[in-house]
Design a protein around this nucleic acid. Structure first.
Lengths: 336, 336
DNA sequence: TTGAAAGCGCTACCAG
DNA sequence: CTGGTAGCGCTTTCAA
């Protein structure tokens, strides 16, 4: 593959000049530009990004750390970062396959080796302490879907507690009186906070959530089905159920209908996340919109700003997002 | 950030020695290894991948070119490549946002600048000619979801024609006699071949597909709904419909049921791709499985083999995939 | 087993 | 406006 030297030689100029036309440098004669441009084309020259990164100390690379790509939620997150990358003429470097604290750490380290200018990381397993140290070491690191007080301006997160409250208010407004809740068995913050917000809001209006009407399951379609079966098996009645995420909610609808309950006329089902899936279910799912893509773009932009010279001290940046209720067809006024 | 020189200086050895322990090089004394390892940890040293790539002329980077990440089909494709990347200790470089031949070309060029060792590209807009030249220029380039005679061993593709035939045979075996077909309005090979295979197979058993019962639409949920409305509006009867992809098929089911037809008892619906969605629909979608992830892994491995020293001349490699029928709930024996 | 030194391809600084 | 040149951080001979 042709190098800058080849181009310089063939064009009869110095490498410095070639470099200048490559970077639209100042003060290059039109003649030189044309000559060099032609030779570059002839030689099929392609600048070596690695060499450039080495000397400029910037890789024009944006790293993303997510558990996997197939989950549409994380795909949207990656997509958000990709959009910003393209806007800023940067490239996306992706690390996935995260299950444990170690693999999360490995993924981040790989991005560091590649000297990613900025990295958007979704970490659930690494401790606050470790993440804080990392943030101090890597200027362009931004956390998404996680909030750590000490580095608040480097976190872009969703207010899950408020999400739970919004859910409760919606169902309450529809005059429901008896509720069930399906949460995730993975005891990370998100499901716990959503549940707490839901309970708190109910409690504030004098409604108690029966402990037997709270189920924890795998955050998948099947998990939702199983949890719903258990709910039904309890024999307790409820007219509305708030579910941890859309996949589980769709599973819940499926099981409910298999058992003769109409959604929403008999039982209302409210999901969370608003992934693509929710628009494909029948009835279409009412859910809380989690603007991941937008948040990912925001995170990427914060990272870029962080590493850019003029480190504008925008500490007042709005990094907390509130989910928005999306009323579709799976929730309605309580019958009777 | 500490460099190899820093480590060498602090450890009191030469950079060559540090490099050796870094690469598990041969002939390094245990003492040196320990000393250097400790200093690397103390200094929080992280080798610079760009510098390494520059000198070794290999980036341990795997590039992927796809239209977008949000489409679950492409997410699976990317995931497949990612899995191989991880197995081989390589990193994923992603380029998306492809709409035109130009943007496809740009994406590929970016990966070339980054000197990706191997790249898996999904291109629909670039001409055979251009792609052939590219393949000759980039040793590790592999095409996925596309077949070009001249570089057949660099292509991993699905036999769409056969897919259409399999669909027809399935519906025929269920004793259907009158068929409809919903295809994609984008006249690239895939939808055309699927439709042709379907028609050919029907014809071979003496059944003709009524031209008025072939609709072309946007390959989305809405597209499927609209196409189905047109089908219904034609007034012609059909008991089975073969749809271009799962999203459209789900849209079709939705419209069919809204118009009083039960799926599958009144009308059978057969999708294509077997994306996650198909398991979430009600009734669960019968479809043809497109093993993208597996194919993507295969493509990545071919690319890796291509750039590895021992270019094993495995021209007999199996690169053609046949979709597999996944019988779920949306297809059944013709009633009556 | 170790060190010195020559680049990898490029940018940027300094002269001219 | 142009050329010479010193590295960026690392690997890899070649000698010692």
């Amino acid at each position: 593959m042709a190098t800058i030297k080849d181009v310089a030689r063939v064009a009869g100029v110095s490498v410095a000049s070639v470099s200048r036309v490559l970077n639209n440098g100042p003060k290059v004669s039109k003649a030189t530009i044309e000559k060099v441009t032609k030779v570059m084309a002839d030689l099929n020259y392609s600048p070596n990004a690695n060499a450039r990164a080495l000397v400029t100390q910037k890789s024009t690379t944006l790293g993303v750390v997510i558990p996997d790509l197939v989950d549409p939620f994380f795909a949207s997150l990656a997509q958000g970062v990709e959009i910003v990358a393209r806007q800023k003429d940067m490239q996306l470097l992706l690390s996935t396959g995260l299950v444990t604290a170690e693999t999360e750490m490995q993924a981040i380290n790989l991005l560091i080796e590649r000297r990613c200018d900025v990295m958007v990381v979704h970490s659930k397993k690494l401790s606050d302490q470790v993440l804080i140290e990392l943030a101090n070491k890597v200027p362009g690191l931004v956390l998404i879907d996680r909030y750590i007080e000490e580095i608040a301006q480097r976190c872009v997160w969703l207010d899950n507690l408020e999400g739970g409250k919004i859910a409760a208010r919606h169902l309450l407004a529809l005059e429901h009186k008896s509720f069930a809740c399906i949460s995730s068995k993975y005891q990370i913050d998100d499901p716990l906070l959503r549940l707490k917000g839901f309970q708190d809001e109910l409690k504030s209006t004098g409604v108690m959530l029966d402990a037997q009407l709270i189920e924890f399951g795998e955050p998948t379609l099947q998990g939702g089905e199983i949890a719903t079966q258990k709910l039904l098996a309890s024999g307790k009645r409820f007219s509305a159920v708030f579910v941890y995420n859309d996949a589980m909610a769709i599973g819940a609808i499926s099981t409910l209908e298999d058992n003769g309950f109409k959604v929403p006329s008999d039982i209302s089902v409210l999901g969370f996340d608003d992934v693509l899936l929710s628009r494909y279910s029948r009835p279409k799912l009412s859910t809380l919109n989690y603007p991941v893509e937008e948040m990912a773009m925001h995170a990427a932009n914060i990272g870029i700003e962080l590493v850019s010279k003029q480190a504008t001290k925008n500490n007042d940046k709005h990094c907390k997002y509130i989910p928005r209720l999306v009323k579709r067809e799976s929730t309605s006024f309580k019958a009777g």
